[in-house]
Design a binder for these strands. Structure first.
Lengths: 153, 153
DNA sequence: CCGTTAAACCGTATATTTCGCGAAAAAAGG
DNA sequence: CCTTTTTTCGCGAAATATACGGTTTAACGG
Protein backbone atom coordinates (compact mmCIF):
# COMPACT_ATOMS: atom_id res chain seq x y z
CA UNK A 1 0.00 0.00 0.00
CA UNK A 2 0.83 3.68 0.13
CA UNK A 3 3.83 3.49 -2.16
CA UNK A 4 4.85 6.67 -3.85
CA UNK A 5 6.39 6.81 -7.31
CA UNK A 6 8.28 9.46 -9.21
CA UNK A 7 5.11 10.97 -10.64
CA UNK A 8 3.61 11.36 -7.17
CA UNK A 9 6.70 13.20 -6.01
CA UNK A 10 6.50 15.48 -8.98
CA UNK A 11 2.86 16.19 -8.18
CA UNK A 12 3.64 17.04 -4.57
CA UNK A 13 6.44 19.32 -5.64
CA UNK A 14 4.29 21.19 -8.14
CA UNK A 15 1.40 21.48 -5.70
CA UNK A 16 3.67 22.98 -3.07
CA UNK A 17 4.68 25.72 -5.47
CA UNK A 18 1.17 26.38 -6.75
CA UNK A 19 -1.62 24.93 -4.67
CA UNK A 20 -4.28 26.18 -7.07
CA UNK A 21 -2.87 24.74 -10.27
CA UNK A 22 -5.74 23.11 -12.16
CA UNK A 23 -6.05 19.39 -12.32
CA UNK A 24 -5.79 19.57 -16.12
CA UNK A 25 -2.62 21.64 -16.09
CA UNK A 26 -1.06 19.41 -13.49
CA UNK A 27 -1.90 16.34 -15.55
CA UNK A 28 -0.33 17.84 -18.63
CA UNK A 29 2.87 18.81 -16.78
CA UNK A 30 3.51 15.31 -15.52
CA UNK A 31 2.22 13.59 -18.63
CA UNK A 32 -0.81 11.62 -17.51
CA UNK A 33 -4.50 11.99 -18.42
CA UNK A 34 -6.51 14.46 -16.34
CA UNK A 35 -8.76 11.82 -14.91
CA UNK A 36 -5.83 9.77 -13.66
CA UNK A 37 -4.58 12.89 -11.98
CA UNK A 38 -7.89 13.15 -10.16
CA UNK A 39 -7.43 9.63 -8.87
CA UNK A 40 -3.86 10.26 -7.71
CA UNK A 41 -4.80 13.48 -6.00
CA UNK A 42 -7.56 11.81 -4.08
CA UNK A 43 -5.23 8.98 -3.11
CA UNK A 44 -2.48 11.33 -1.96
CA UNK A 45 -4.99 13.13 0.23
CA UNK A 46 -6.57 9.98 1.60
CA UNK A 47 -3.19 8.49 2.49
CA UNK A 48 -2.10 11.67 4.26
CA UNK A 49 0.62 12.91 1.95
CA UNK A 50 -1.34 16.05 1.27
CA UNK A 51 -2.58 17.46 4.55
CA UNK A 52 -4.51 20.32 2.98
CA UNK A 53 -4.27 23.49 0.96
CA UNK A 54 -3.71 27.01 2.13
CA UNK A 55 -3.28 30.55 0.90
CA UNK A 56 -0.06 32.27 1.86
CA UNK A 57 -0.99 35.65 3.34
CA UNK A 58 1.48 38.50 3.74
CA UNK A 59 1.63 39.02 7.52
CA UNK A 60 2.76 42.64 7.18
CA UNK A 61 -0.31 43.53 5.15
CA UNK A 62 -2.64 42.33 7.87
CA UNK A 63 -0.99 44.12 10.77
CA UNK A 64 1.38 41.39 11.94
CA UNK A 65 4.68 43.10 11.26
CA UNK A 66 6.75 41.68 14.08
CA UNK A 67 8.00 38.10 14.12
CA UNK A 68 9.41 36.82 17.39
CA UNK A 69 11.03 33.61 18.57
CA UNK A 70 10.91 32.74 22.25
CA UNK A 71 12.85 30.08 24.10
CA UNK A 72 10.76 28.74 26.97
CA UNK A 73 11.87 26.73 29.99
CA UNK A 74 9.38 24.99 32.26
CA UNK A 75 9.69 24.06 35.90
CA UNK A 76 8.83 20.39 35.67
CA UNK A 77 7.36 20.01 39.14
CA UNK A 78 4.17 18.24 38.04
CA UNK A 79 4.19 15.24 35.72
CA UNK A 80 1.63 16.75 33.37
CA UNK A 81 3.49 20.02 32.97
CA UNK A 82 4.16 19.38 29.29
CA UNK A 83 0.58 18.49 28.58
CA UNK A 84 -0.81 21.60 30.26
CA UNK A 85 1.62 23.90 28.53
CA UNK A 86 0.90 22.32 25.13
CA UNK A 87 -2.79 22.88 25.53
CA UNK A 88 -2.30 26.52 26.42
CA UNK A 89 -0.05 27.01 23.39
CA UNK A 90 -2.63 25.60 21.01
CA UNK A 91 -5.19 28.11 22.26
CA UNK A 92 -2.99 31.18 21.70
CA UNK A 93 -3.62 32.58 18.20
CA UNK A 94 -0.44 34.68 18.26
CA UNK A 95 1.63 31.50 18.44
CA UNK A 96 2.13 30.14 14.93
CA UNK A 97 4.52 27.34 15.83
CA UNK A 98 5.73 25.64 18.99
CA UNK A 99 8.19 22.79 19.21
CA UNK A 100 9.56 20.81 22.10
CA UNK A 101 13.31 20.68 21.63
CA UNK A 102 16.32 18.91 23.06
CA UNK A 103 19.06 21.20 24.31
CA UNK A 104 19.31 24.18 26.62
CA UNK A 105 15.58 24.87 26.98
CA UNK A 106 12.24 23.11 26.57
CA UNK A 107 10.14 24.82 23.91
CA UNK A 108 10.80 27.06 20.98
CA UNK A 109 7.88 29.35 20.20
CA UNK A 110 7.31 31.31 17.00
CA UNK A 111 4.80 34.14 17.33
CA UNK A 112 3.53 37.03 15.24
CA UNK A 113 2.38 40.33 16.69
CA UNK A 114 1.84 43.85 15.41
CA UNK A 115 4.73 45.57 17.21
CA UNK A 116 6.86 45.57 20.34
CA UNK A 117 4.09 47.06 22.46
CA UNK A 118 1.85 44.21 21.42
CA UNK A 119 4.59 41.70 22.15
CA UNK A 120 5.12 43.19 25.58
CA UNK A 121 1.50 42.57 26.51
CA UNK A 122 1.50 39.14 24.88
CA UNK A 123 4.53 38.15 26.93
CA UNK A 124 3.12 39.47 30.20
CA UNK A 125 -0.52 38.51 29.80
CA UNK A 126 -0.32 35.30 27.80
CA UNK A 127 3.03 33.56 27.68
CA UNK A 128 4.25 34.13 31.23
CA UNK A 129 0.86 33.09 32.56
CA UNK A 130 0.95 29.73 30.84
CA UNK A 131 1.18 26.78 33.23
CA UNK A 132 4.70 25.84 34.30
CA UNK A 133 6.61 28.59 32.52
CA UNK A 134 9.78 29.31 34.48
CA UNK A 135 11.93 31.34 32.12
CA UNK A 136 11.77 32.87 28.65
CA UNK A 137 14.29 34.39 26.27
CA UNK A 138 13.02 36.58 23.44
CA UNK A 139 14.58 36.95 19.98
CA UNK A 140 12.91 39.54 17.77
CA UNK A 141 13.42 38.98 14.06
CA UNK A 142 15.21 41.83 12.28
CA UNK A 143 15.15 40.34 8.79
CA UNK A 144 13.33 37.37 7.30
CA UNK A 145 16.06 35.93 5.11
CA UNK A 146 14.07 32.87 4.03
CA UNK A 147 10.47 33.10 5.19
CA UNK A 148 9.02 29.76 4.10
CA UNK A 149 10.56 27.42 1.57
CA UNK A 150 8.86 24.35 0.09
CA UNK A 151 9.94 20.90 1.23
CA UNK A 152 12.72 19.45 -0.92
CA UNK A 153 10.86 16.56 -2.53
CA UNK B 1 -6.33 52.30 -2.63
CA UNK B 2 -5.50 49.02 -0.88
CA UNK B 3 -8.05 49.34 1.89
CA UNK B 4 -9.26 46.12 3.40
CA UNK B 5 -12.75 45.64 4.83
CA UNK B 6 -14.34 43.05 7.04
CA UNK B 7 -15.29 40.85 4.11
CA UNK B 8 -11.73 40.82 2.82
CA UNK B 9 -10.49 39.67 6.21
CA UNK B 10 -13.06 36.92 6.25
CA UNK B 11 -11.92 35.85 2.80
CA UNK B 12 -8.28 35.72 3.84
CA UNK B 13 -9.16 33.73 6.92
CA UNK B 14 -11.19 31.18 4.99
CA UNK B 15 -8.55 30.87 2.28
CA UNK B 16 -5.87 30.16 4.86
CA UNK B 17 -7.89 27.25 6.19
CA UNK B 18 -8.82 25.87 2.78
CA UNK B 19 -6.81 27.21 -0.12
CA UNK B 20 -8.78 25.19 -2.63
CA UNK B 21 -12.25 26.30 -1.65
CA UNK B 22 -14.13 27.18 -4.81
CA UNK B 23 -14.87 30.75 -5.67
CA UNK B 24 -18.58 29.95 -5.59
CA UNK B 25 -18.48 28.37 -2.13
CA UNK B 26 -16.38 31.21 -0.79
CA UNK B 27 -18.84 33.73 -2.16
CA UNK B 28 -21.73 31.97 -0.53
CA UNK B 29 -19.97 31.78 2.84
CA UNK B 30 -19.33 35.50 3.01
CA UNK B 31 -22.60 36.46 1.36
CA UNK B 32 -21.64 38.14 -1.88
CA UNK B 33 -22.22 37.06 -5.51
CA UNK B 34 -19.63 34.77 -7.01
CA UNK B 35 -18.51 37.24 -9.60
CA UNK B 36 -17.82 39.90 -6.99
CA UNK B 37 -15.73 37.34 -5.19
CA UNK B 38 -13.69 36.87 -8.34
CA UNK B 39 -12.98 40.58 -8.41
CA UNK B 40 -11.98 40.71 -4.76
CA UNK B 41 -9.73 37.71 -5.08
CA UNK B 42 -7.91 39.22 -8.00
CA UNK B 43 -7.53 42.50 -6.10
CA UNK B 44 -6.21 40.78 -2.98
CA UNK B 45 -3.61 39.01 -5.08
CA UNK B 46 -2.63 42.04 -7.11
CA UNK B 47 -2.18 44.15 -3.98
CA UNK B 48 -0.02 41.52 -2.34
CA UNK B 49 -2.27 40.35 0.46
CA UNK B 50 -2.34 36.87 -1.00
CA UNK B 51 1.19 35.84 -1.87
CA UNK B 52 0.21 32.52 -3.40
CA UNK B 53 -1.29 29.14 -2.73
CA UNK B 54 0.36 25.97 -1.56
CA UNK B 55 -0.34 22.39 -0.60
CA UNK B 56 0.64 21.36 2.89
CA UNK B 57 2.67 18.16 2.58
CA UNK B 58 3.34 15.82 5.49
CA UNK B 59 7.14 15.93 5.88
CA UNK B 60 7.30 12.54 7.55
CA UNK B 61 5.61 10.86 4.60
CA UNK B 62 8.28 12.09 2.21
CA UNK B 63 11.30 11.10 4.24
CA UNK B 64 11.88 14.30 6.18
CA UNK B 65 11.24 13.05 9.68
CA UNK B 66 13.69 15.20 11.60
CA UNK B 67 13.07 18.89 12.26
CA UNK B 68 16.03 20.87 13.59
CA UNK B 69 16.59 24.43 14.71
CA UNK B 70 20.09 25.87 14.61
CA UNK B 71 21.38 29.05 16.17
CA UNK B 72 24.14 30.49 14.01
CA UNK B 73 26.73 33.12 14.93
CA UNK B 74 28.87 34.81 12.28
CA UNK B 75 32.30 36.32 12.59
CA UNK B 76 31.55 39.75 11.17
CA UNK B 77 35.01 40.48 9.79
CA UNK B 78 33.88 41.51 6.34
CA UNK B 79 31.14 44.09 5.77
CA UNK B 80 29.22 41.84 3.38
CA UNK B 81 29.21 38.86 5.72
CA UNK B 82 25.44 39.00 6.12
CA UNK B 83 24.84 39.20 2.41
CA UNK B 84 27.07 36.24 1.60
CA UNK B 85 25.54 34.09 4.30
CA UNK B 86 22.02 34.97 3.19
CA UNK B 87 22.73 33.93 -0.34
CA UNK B 88 24.14 30.59 0.76
CA UNK B 89 21.08 29.96 2.92
CA UNK B 90 18.69 30.56 0.06
CA UNK B 91 20.45 27.92 -2.00
CA UNK B 92 20.24 25.19 0.63
CA UNK B 93 17.06 23.16 0.09
CA UNK B 94 17.22 21.59 3.57
CA UNK B 95 16.77 25.05 5.09
CA UNK B 96 13.06 25.87 5.23
CA UNK B 97 13.36 29.11 7.16
CA UNK B 98 16.14 31.46 8.22
CA UNK B 99 15.75 34.66 10.21
CA UNK B 100 18.23 37.26 11.36
CA UNK B 101 17.50 37.88 15.01
CA UNK B 102 18.44 40.31 17.76
CA UNK B 103 19.85 38.70 20.88
CA UNK B 104 22.53 36.19 21.70
CA UNK B 105 23.25 35.00 18.15
CA UNK B 106 22.79 36.16 14.55
CA UNK B 107 20.56 33.74 12.63
CA UNK B 108 17.97 31.18 13.54
CA UNK B 109 17.75 28.37 10.99
CA UNK B 110 14.93 25.85 10.62
CA UNK B 111 15.86 22.77 8.61
CA UNK B 112 14.33 19.42 7.74
CA UNK B 113 16.33 16.25 7.19
CA UNK B 114 15.65 12.53 7.18
CA UNK B 115 17.48 11.61 10.37
CA UNK B 116 20.44 12.42 12.61
CA UNK B 117 22.94 10.90 10.19
CA UNK B 118 21.62 13.16 7.50
CA UNK B 119 21.78 16.15 9.82
CA UNK B 120 25.36 15.32 10.73
CA UNK B 121 26.41 15.53 7.09
CA UNK B 122 24.29 18.61 6.46
CA UNK B 123 25.96 20.36 9.38
CA UNK B 124 29.48 19.40 8.34
CA UNK B 125 29.18 19.71 4.57
CA UNK B 126 26.71 22.56 4.18
CA UNK B 127 26.09 24.73 7.19
CA UNK B 128 29.60 24.93 8.65
CA UNK B 129 30.98 25.65 5.20
CA UNK B 130 28.76 28.67 4.66
CA UNK B 131 30.66 31.97 4.52
CA UNK B 132 31.33 33.59 7.89
CA UNK B 133 29.87 30.91 10.13
CA UNK B 134 31.70 31.00 13.46
CA UNK B 135 29.54 28.96 15.80
CA UNK B 136 26.36 26.89 15.75
CA UNK B 137 24.09 25.42 18.37
CA UNK B 138 21.69 22.64 17.36
CA UNK B 139 18.26 21.96 18.80
CA UNK B 140 16.58 18.81 17.49
CA UNK B 141 12.80 18.84 17.75
CA UNK B 142 11.36 16.05 19.89
CA UNK B 143 7.70 16.93 19.46
CA UNK B 144 5.90 19.31 17.14
CA UNK B 145 3.34 20.78 19.50
CA UNK B 146 1.95 23.29 17.01
CA UNK B 147 3.37 22.72 13.54
CA UNK B 148 1.90 25.56 11.52
CA UNK B 149 -1.07 27.65 12.56
CA UNK B 150 -2.90 30.16 10.32
CA UNK B 151 -2.36 33.86 10.89
CA UNK B 152 -4.89 35.34 13.31
CA UNK B 153 -6.82 37.62 10.95
C1' DC C 1 1.49 -21.78 -13.32
C1' DC C 2 -3.06 -20.38 -12.76
C1' DG C 3 -7.10 -18.14 -10.76
C1' DT C 4 -8.84 -14.72 -7.70
C1' DT C 5 -9.02 -10.23 -5.83
C1' DA C 6 -7.86 -5.68 -5.24
C1' DA C 7 -5.90 -1.70 -6.91
C1' DA C 8 -4.62 1.54 -10.50
C1' DC C 9 -5.51 3.43 -15.09
C1' DC C 10 -8.10 6.14 -18.30
C1' DG C 11 -12.10 7.62 -21.84
C1' DT C 12 -16.67 9.42 -21.94
C1' DA C 13 -20.29 12.15 -20.42
C1' DT C 14 -22.14 15.19 -17.07
C1' DA C 15 -22.06 18.55 -13.56
C1' DT C 16 -19.68 22.34 -11.69
C1' DT C 17 -16.88 26.27 -11.82
C1' DT C 18 -14.52 30.14 -13.70
C1' DC C 19 -14.23 34.34 -16.15
C1' DG C 20 -14.96 38.00 -19.69
C1' DC C 21 -18.23 41.33 -20.82
C1' DG C 22 -21.10 45.10 -20.03
C1' DA C 23 -24.68 47.39 -17.30
C1' DA C 24 -25.90 49.25 -12.86
C1' DA C 25 -24.65 51.14 -8.59
C1' DA C 26 -21.67 53.51 -5.53
C1' DA C 27 -17.87 56.54 -4.32
C1' DA C 28 -14.73 60.36 -5.13
C1' DG C 29 -13.74 64.94 -6.41
C1' DG C 30 -14.57 69.01 -7.86
C1' DC D 1 -25.09 68.80 -8.41
C1' DC D 2 -22.62 66.84 -12.08
C1' DT D 3 -18.68 64.20 -13.87
C1' DT D 4 -15.33 60.66 -13.50
C1' DT D 5 -13.66 56.62 -11.55
C1' DT D 6 -14.20 52.56 -9.07
C1' DT D 7 -16.74 48.77 -7.41
C1' DT D 8 -20.50 45.61 -7.80
C1' DC D 9 -22.93 42.04 -10.07
C1' DG D 10 -25.90 39.20 -13.63
C1' DC D 11 -25.47 36.59 -17.80
C1' DG D 12 -23.56 33.16 -20.71
C1' DA D 13 -19.64 30.97 -23.02
C1' DA D 14 -15.66 28.35 -22.10
C1' DA D 15 -12.85 25.74 -19.09
C1' DT D 16 -12.60 22.49 -15.38
C1' DA D 17 -13.61 18.72 -12.29
C1' DT D 18 -15.49 14.31 -11.25
C1' DA D 19 -18.70 10.09 -11.13
C1' DC D 20 -19.03 6.09 -13.68
C1' DG D 21 -17.56 1.90 -15.71
C1' DG D 22 -14.65 -0.89 -18.57
C1' DT D 23 -9.81 -2.27 -19.04
C1' DT D 24 -5.31 -3.21 -17.44
C1' DT D 25 -1.93 -4.30 -14.08
C1' DA D 26 -0.12 -6.22 -9.68
C1' DA D 27 -0.25 -9.28 -5.58
C1' DC D 28 -1.02 -13.34 -3.42
C1' DG D 29 -2.21 -18.15 -2.37
C1' DG D 30 -2.76 -22.26 -3.83
Amino acid sequence: MSEIDRIDRRILDLLQRDGRITNAELAQRVGIPATSMSDRLKRLQKHGYILGFTARIDPHRVGLGLLVFVEVSLDKTTPDAFEKFSRAVRHAPEILECHMVAGGFDYLVKARVTDMAHYRSFLGDVLLNMPGVAETRTFPVMEEVKPDAPLPI
